[in-house]
Design a protein around this nucleic acid. Structure first.
Lengths: 200, 200
DNA sequence: GTCTATATGCTGATAGAC
DNA sequence: GTCTATCAGCATATAGAC
């Protein structure tokens, strides 16, 4: 198991290969979904034997966790610039998600499994959730100061609700792909916004 | 496989037994969670052999689907009276859910699996969602007419959001049981409510 | 109607050759 | 670093005795 910290020596190539595997696996999952979510089928898809693939990851669960981590990395780079507004960024990510049902399925599936504190993805989901909510809450705090959101609302709680809605909409969407997740999430933001005061 | 419609003849006892199995299984799942979610362990828990249990259900998936149906039946009878306000009823159900983590885990797990149209729970989740949203939407419509909710909001969309938030909060709660799902859901209802006009 | 016993197929994981 | 070969475990499902 290569140590991600190491960058010298023979590990460098291993790390590069690992990243390559993850990118490839992410594409496969996005396209093919979770039908062949076994290590064996994923190994075939990325051009390795099952044992060859598991050489890079401790277990199946760790492999899938790392795939999701890679997904976040790409989302951050491609859909969430440093200067992007939170609502806009969220909209873009969710819009993109509706083009990769397999990734949504993997995320949802692992969300459930990771409830077990022993699961390799447990810490990942905890930290990811905190980061996401902190970002959303900060945005709400700014909008609150600008008077766009009622002062009585707790930005942390609103952030929780937005995250929950986003995750829950994925469950609904997997059941019924006609649902537009991005639009519905926008509607939530609108509903949380104080009606403008201009009487016309 | 007993036909649930039949009530005469030798089937009557079979149906009663089936209901008894479901109630017992629900209790087991609520208490022990999904650790022993195999048919074998569930069979042991309800005092049958694996084959004996599968005599009443076509498959494991159908069994779990029926457990959730039984759960809804009990929720409806015990926590959602005919005259109960939707928000209040939802609060009660969610509050109760936080005492049965295993049921929440089963529900979430099956929500994901049921995305597959072939899954026995697919229709169940579709119909359940529609029913739930219709009920929530009707409540919002009434509150809208009473002026408590902005007229511009679409009750159907708001209902979707509430359902999504409820489901998503379960995922967050399984990860971090300190979260109060019922209170957070209440906060959503409050946030969707138009600030009262009384200037003080 | 319920049991025991078993068939069959998959899974993730490992050992060891190269 | 990657492979082939193999393992033990567990799943669902069925056959047939009682």
């Amino acid at each position: 198991m290569p140590d991600p910290q190491r960058t010298r020596g023979s590990y460098a190539k291993g790390i590069a290969k690992r990243e390559e595997i993850l990118e490839r696996a992410l594409e496969v999952v996005a396209r093919e979904g979770m039908r062949g979510a076994s290590v064996r089928e994923l190994a075939d898809a990325v051009g390795l034997s099952q044992a060859g693939l598991l050489h890079y990851f401790d277990s199946k669960e760790e492999l899938f966790t790392e795939i999701l981590r890679k997904r976040d990395e790409i989302d951050l780079a491609e859909r969430l610039g440093a200067g992007t507004d939170v609502q806009e960024g969220l909209h873009r990510v969710v819009r993109h998600n509706s083009e990769v049902p397999g990734v949504v399925a993997l995320f949802s599936r692992l969300s459930v499994d990771a409830a077990d504190p022993q699961h390799p993805a447990h810490a990942f989901f905890l930290e990811r959730g905190e980061r996401l909510r902190a970002s959303i809450a900060a945005s709400f705090r700014r909008r609150q100061e600008a008077g766009e959101i009622p002062a009585a609302a707790d930005p942390e709680v609103l952030a929780r609700i937005v995250q929950a809605a986003a995750d829950g909409l994925q469950l609904q969407w997997m059941l019924d792909p006609d649902l537009d997740m991005a639009d519905t999430l926008d509607a939530l933001f609108v509903a949380l916004t104080r009606p403008s005061e201009d009487a016309s």
